[in-house]
Design a protein around this nucleic acid. Structure first.
Lengths: 143, 143
DNA sequence: ACGCAAATGCAAATCATTTGCATCTAAATT
DNA sequence: AATTTAGATGCAAATGATTTGCATTTGCGT
């Protein structure tokens, strides 16, 4: 993604265009990893970008509110993770061996949600799915 | 569940039979709600059971390790919740209006896991599914 | 360039949870 | 039944992720 498009997303949301917002969006838009606030801070530091950790948190909050990023929580992890919002519905496959997190762009629940709606009276607005297990490499080391 | 059976589960896990362990199992086995550590503390206090909050946490950890309870985390909530483990695979339907959490004893993912395994090489050991939305009553108040 | 609302830095607060250590208790042993 | 001891508990303090108050700085419309 071009820096110009990042700036457009920031301004389009009615936010001020600041260097740190661009830095954070830039970093996350270049990976499909889930990254924690502390890890974002660390990676920026490595590039000599001296942002305060509380600014990282505030920036993440605002970018999540404006749907530029997604906040993701993982079972058993106390910190939150962030990803660039590509507006593609997806879930995660999480390796309990190496903690690798792999997005899956295929959703098994679309039909099921309809059924649930008619049975429960709930209006379903979203869902979360995570699969846990061991990836190919870690499986080999399990024995 | 009888108190005797609770004690058996405790002893069967190789743990000492203490009043607080029984108190916590008893409370959770009588509801299908998800209850937080602090809420467990509050409910016991209301029954004049004076347990220390750190004992609540330690007891929950041990009972989860021994599969007598389940620890559940909910997207967007920072604390953990606990339920009595009835060994019945289930998921949750969470109302964003009133925060009610309803278990669903019907799983849409069994077939899908097989597919995922063959496509990704992952050995799947578990999954988590949550549905978010608005229950009948809250939906009426949304307008 | 000027002014103001929004963004940032810094330190301290908060909230859920964990830990160290002294004391107590369940239950195994004598 | 008294003794022993590993494990359980209480209490206060520590921890880790996140949030907040307030002073200062910056983006951007005028």
């Amino acid at each position: 993604m071009t820096k110009e498009r990042m700036v457009n997303r920031i301004i389009g949301a009615g936010l001020k265009n600041t260097k740190y917002r661009v830095n954070i969006i830039e970093m996350l838009s270049k990976t499909d990893e889930l990254v924690s606030a502390q890890e974002i801070y660390n990676r920026l530091l490595k590039k000599s970008i001296f942002i305060n950790l509380s600014t990282v948190y505030r920036t993440l909050d605002i970018l999540v509110d404006n749907k530029i990023l997604n906040r993701v929580t993982i079972e058993g992890e106390k910190q939150s993770f962030y990803e660039y919002n590509r507006d593609i519905h997806h879930h995660f496959l999480i390796c309990r061996g190496c903690n690798k997190i792999i997005p899956i762009y295929d959703c098994p629940l679309e039909d099921y949600e309809q059924k649930l709606k008619s049975e429960s009276g709930f209006v379903i607005t979203g869902h979360r799915v995570e699969f846990y297990g061991y990836c190919d490499e870690c499986r080999k080391n399990l024995i």
